[in-house]
Design a protein around this nucleic acid. Structure first.
Lengths: 208, 208
DNA sequence: TCGGTGACTTGACACCGTGTCAAGCGCATT
DNA sequence: AATGCGCTTGACACGGTGTCAAGTCACCGA
């Protein structure tokens, strides 16, 4: 992982860290591993990131920056109906999960012992929840939200269905393909959130 | 946590470990913490449990033993219909989650670095999946399984809906009560798995 | 009553990963 | 030539796990 010309040392370290996390040795990534991968001394890493938690946090930010999150979310924001907004949001977030998951995992593990990591991850999840809330609100505006659910509860439900844990279970442990996952989640979200009448009006997404 | 008369040292340690995990300091429980809580030297702990992973694994077993798992599962096994079997299984497992969750969390964290912990947890999840598969089979036998789902997929779906991560999200992070969780999960499982016609035939569980 | 055995204690130590510190080095700027 | 900056080198403290050896103590059988 030699630094490619005009990358700053900081960026080189972040890229190396990301790469190691994505390589997924199974074992946790150490500061010295990152240093070695970045072709830099261990202390150089500490110079830029005082603690391991900081490195992980910044790596997550770095991935966000490199991933054009706004572009991913545009289709959902521009949707013309509640159900479409829901579908587009599930696509946007559901397809972003595999991008961030290795770093997310490290960050979550770090949360065990580090306060900053904990709040960083909590904030990310809160942001994701905003998207859920917006989709639910759009469903509600269309009169398609199940009468058995308050907006709050519906948001909770959607938020948990879209959790990274759920993705890990389905894709990694059950071996579903990414597109199976996204399609199934759309179906599941509809089944969970929509009023029965609204559900009947929607086309099936896949026939398995 | 003085040892109560006729408990062996081993049992005293297991109880202390469980208690510490359930106290939930936020910080990971150390071997020395367990020793102190059990009123025993740190080495005594290592005498009974060579590695931390062993202690955690045995603590999980110990909780199982103390919790009459078979009794919990009986209502599901004896159910007279697929839907009832499903409901009873969700109750059984859903209400067991809060019992094991502190230990489960420690075990999952340990899986990061320890092979034995990893396979132990995987085995527990595989066992839980058996219950899901049985419920799905019962639904299928009644002709109530959604035609859009294979038994395999339906099992995957139910299994992930019942994952401990999902419980943590809903109960701990969203603040749902345990009974809200169980009721919602029954509803959700029905919405996800049942054929539309079968769904219409089922009574609503709660009106929120 | 003695010897032995097994369970536990005490205290030391190696190992590893994190985080800190101080000194030094090369290089660009002035 | 002197300064400052980014990085390296090598050392060290700390905390948690896991290991080891010697010692204590109570109970059991001969």
């Amino acid at each position: 992982m030699p630094r490619s010309q005009n990358d700053s040392t900081r960026t080189t370290i972040l890229k190396a860290c990301r790469q190691l996390l994505e390589a997924g040795s199974g074992q946790p990534v150490r500061m010295s591993d990152v240093a070695k991968a970045a072709g830099v001394s261990r202390q150089a890493v500490y110079l830029h990131f005082p603690k391991r938690a900081d490195l992980l946090i910044e790596t997550a930010r770095h991935i966000d920056d490199a991933s054009d999150v706004d572009t991913r979310l545009a289709p959902s924001r521009n949707a013309s109906s509640g159900v479409e907004r829901l579908d587009r949001y599930i696509e946007a977030w559901g397809n972003y999960i595999p991008v961030v998951i290795p770093t997310a995992r490290a960050l979550i593990a770090m949360s065990e012992t580090d306060e900053d990591a904990r709040t960083t991850w909590a904030n990310r999840m809160a942001a994701m929840r905003e998207g859920c809330a917006a989709a639910v609100k759009a469903l509600e505006a269309d009169g398609n939200l199940s009468p058995a659910l308050s907006a709050e509860r519906a948001t909770d439900l959607l938020w948990t269905l879209l959790s990274v844990g759920h993705w890990e279970d389905l894709v990694e442990r059950c071996g579903w393909s990414q597109s199976d996952y996204v399609d199934s989640l759309k179906q599941l979200a509809r089944a969970a959130l929509l009023a029965p009448a609204a559900q009947a009006r929607q086309p099936r997404i896949t026939a398995l």
